[in-house]
């Protein structure tokens, strides 16, 4: 049953996955954390961090991780294949008709309209992730410090995660 749920969940996620990984986090969260309970809210955030510090596409990393956690190695194979299934079929379809698709006004109109919505999705994920990540008054302080490293010092995102880990160790251990 878990296999079927994994297949269905990741098929749905893959089918509407626009704008790179982050806009899809609310969908991941709803299905993976709330509906099926495969990950706890905090493990869900840990997974995002792990997907970020390891090479490769974030959606593949997440599918592999969630699949493994819920149903072992076979689960991760199923989740990974399901998340790319519909997009790959679409690529095959579009590739054969690339000339007509490239400047298709309908597709471009839908995408232009969808883009601001993706911003809304990302911020809804910011709020829910922030709520689970909050521990104590050090949390907002840490946030401000890390934002400064990211925006002002232009530190690489992976290094920002590493710095956050070191600070977490110093503060909480």
């Amino acid at each position: 049953m878990t296999y079927l749920n994994l297949f269905w969940t990741f098929l749905m996620i893959g089918a509407v996955s626009f704008g790179g990984g982050y806009a899809m986090l609310p969908l991941f969260e709803r299905m993976v954390v709330e509906t099926h309970g495969w990950l706890s809210p905090s493990l869900f955030i840990d997974m995002i961090a792990l997907a970020q510090v390891t090479p490769g596409p974030i959606a593949i990393n997440s599918a592999t991780f969630i699949g493994y956690q819920s149903a072992g190695v076979l689960g991760s194979v199923i989740a990974t294949i399901s998340v790319v299934l519909i997009p790959v079929i679409l690529v095959g379809f579009v590739s054969a008709r690339s000339e007509s698709f490239k400047e298709n006004k309908h597709v471009q109109a839908a995408l232009t309209g969808l883009r601001p919505a993706l911003v809304g999705l990302i911020f809804s994920s910011v709020v829910s992730v922030a709520r689970s990540a909050y521990v104590d008054l050090f949390s907002p302080l840490l946030f401000v410090g890390l934002m400064a490293l990211l925006w002002k010092a232009k530190l690489h995102p992976i290094l920002v995660i590493v710095v956050a880990g070191v600070l977490g160790f110093i503060i909480y251990y």
Binding site: V129, M147, L150, G165
Partner: peptide, 19 residues
Amino acid sequence: EAVFKGVRISVVALIFTAG
């Protein structure tokens, strides 16, 4: 656990930045 309490905050910062 301690390390990830810090790491989670960086995830918030990264998603916020992307948004």
